[in-house]
Amino acid sequence: MGSPMKIRAAVKDGVTEVKVLMQHDMETGLRKDAAGAVIPAWFITELTAKHNGRVVLEAQFGTAVSKNPYLVFRFKGGAKGDKVTVSWKDNKDDSRSDEVEIAEKA
């Protein structure tokens, strides 16, 4: 199982802003190690975000996304206390899912 994400979600005027910081090496498969051997590609392929079980964002990631990706998105709706779940899958069939409650935005 992957390392935990850091997720923050806050609602203001009916729009929820979600900030996700993922922990992942995101190897492109183009780098070589000190011995000259290729470091195999290892990256997040799919990401899904749900609000109370409803899909609000689906994304396909590739090798162009940086190490420890940071993603910000907004969706309409959401109330304080609702659940936002973010999950990803990578090309080694590893996955991770984390959940937060929506907070009120100051």
Binding site: S3, P4, K19, L21, Q23, Y70, V72
Partner: peptide, 12 residues
């Protein structure tokens, strides 16, 4: 500055 990966190290 918003998505500082140091936060992941803080969690760990």
């Amino acid at each position: 500055s918003d998505g500082n990966p140091a936060e992941l190290d803080e969690m760990r």
